[in-house]
Simulated assay, not measured.
Amino acid sequence: MKVSIRLPKFHRTFLYVIWSVLSITGLYFAYTQDWKMYDPTIWTTYTLKLHGISASLMLILIGSLIPIHIQLSLETKRNLKSGIPMLITMFILAFSGIALYYSGESWMATAKMLHIWMGIFVIIFLPIHIIIGRKRKKIIK
């Protein structure tokens, strides 16, 4: 039985939709609340809630990548130079997101900046990871 590292279309589409919502809500919240320092509105409250729900779904989706996508990539040593940093970044985002709510005041500013910059990194780097993987697949054939 031949198993592909590439995600099934439904899985891939769901991942892209959740990643897009997560990215847009995260950027919006960081821009309005951290960089521009606007007063919070009902819109920013709902944006943050949507960001949290999307983050929860993204954690489930990342977990769903482990049994096939990540495991096969590690075994075949495919796209590791961008895949391992992606995995580490997702780990940092998950724990910095938790730290935003549950860490003490002394860690709050550090957790916030780490979370924002790692989020921006993922927004830029995930498409690169995907492009590298697709080009590499074409080379291997």
Rank of each mutant, 00 (worst) to 15 (best):
K135S: 09
K9E: 09
D39H: 10
T13I: 14
L59Q: 10
I53C: 03
I124M: 14
W43G: 06
T13M: 08
M108F: 15
T89N: 04
T76Q: 12
P8D: 07
N79R: 00
V17W: 03
D39V: 07
I132D: 02
I123F: 12
A109I: 14
W19P: 00
G83C: 14
N79E: 01
K137D: 13
T45H: 11
R136P: 00
G133Y: 02
I140F: 02
P85L: 00
Y102H: 06
S20M: 05
L114C: 13
T41C: 03
W117M: 12
F121M: 04
M1C: 02
I70D: 06
Y101Q: 10
P8T: 02
P8M: 01
I88H: 04
S4N: 10
S64E: 07
M86D: 11
I130E: 02
S23E: 00
I62Y: 07
S54Q: 11
A99M: 04
H11N: 11
R78V: 14
Y101I: 05
I5A: 08
G133F: 01
Y31Q: 01
H69Y: 00
M113K: 12
Y101V: 09
M118C: 15
A30P: 01
L48T: 03
H129L: 05
Y38Q: 07
Y102D: 04
S82I: 11
T13Y: 07
A94Q: 02
R6N: 13
K137S: 09
L27V: 12
V3I: 13
L15T: 13
K49F: 06
P67I: 10
H115W: 04
R136T: 14
M37S: 06
K36R: 14
H115K: 05
L59I: 11
L65C: 08
H69T: 10
K49Q: 06
L72H: 14
Q33C: 05
E75C: 06
I123T: 06
F29T: 10
L100E: 06
I120H: 00
P127V: 05
L72N: 14
T13R: 10
S96A: 04
G104E: 07
W117Q: 07
P8H: 09
I60R: 02
A111I: 00
S54D: 10
F10A: 11
H51L: 01
M58S: 09
K9R: 11
I24T: 07
M90A: 15
E75N: 11
V3A: 10
F29R: 02
L93V: 13
G104A: 06
L100I: 06
E75Q: 15
I123R: 02
S20K: 00
